[in-house]
Amino acid sequence: MTTEAKDKPKKVYGRPESLKDVGFHFCPGCNHGNVHKMVAEAIDEFGVREKTIGVAGVGCGVFLYNYIDIDVLEAPHGRACAEATGVSRVHPDHVVFTYQGDGDLAAIGIAETIHAANRGEHITVLFVNNTVYGMTGGQMAPTTLLGQKTTTSPYGREFMGEGYPIKMAEMLATLEGTAFVARVACNTPKNIMAAKRAIKKAFKMQIDKMGFTFVEILSACPTNWGMDAVTANKRVEEEMIPYFPLGILKERTTADYL
């Protein structure tokens, strides 16, 4: 009988404790779900659920409060880093992170993001880059790739009129205020593992008061790319990763730049 009990398969993978048992509203194959899962896993790993505060930007990630079992504030479009600055200064003992899309962070909110990073605020910024404004129907974002057709670039993005896709991670890595900057993807199990490690590292460095931590997560938006989920993940590999290379761009070992 005991051997039977011992041999009974154990659950080795399931819903993280901090992820509420409700279904996501995301489209089939949308990587926002993967990122939510990773955030919940990181919160569970550090046991900080009671003292984590999320700030959700505007976009498909706006319903963060529905899914992760923590306190979440909503920020006006693009202002998540400014709001998180306030939260983290009032609650220095809390873990504070923002969850923002590329339309939110790299367009309307680029000033807030750069200044929060430059001030080295003790927050973690999770930047979900899917190269479009997902929630509003797939308009061009600052990160839209050259040649990519969107509802507002029907002939494909051209640098002559619309400029080049912004590489946020590289840009923020140049600032002295940032302690950790990484770019990850969730299109393959291997990339998902690396993404989880980067998010955990960012949370850990924030807990250790190392400064501003930033993780850009390349994601698929199958709906607005007009593809099925499998093809969209292939596009991440073949088109996004060559332009937005993955890896840790910066990892500071001391609390300030000296």
């Binding site: 398969p9 993978y13 819903r15 996501f24 990587n31 779900g33 899962k37 969730c186 998902i192």
Partner: peptide, 19 residues
Amino acid sequence: KGCKFCAETCPDCAIEVYK
């Protein structure tokens, strides 16, 4: 084999793995 690849990639957290 319980490699968890399916569950890791499921965006909707709909898969549990037992091993």
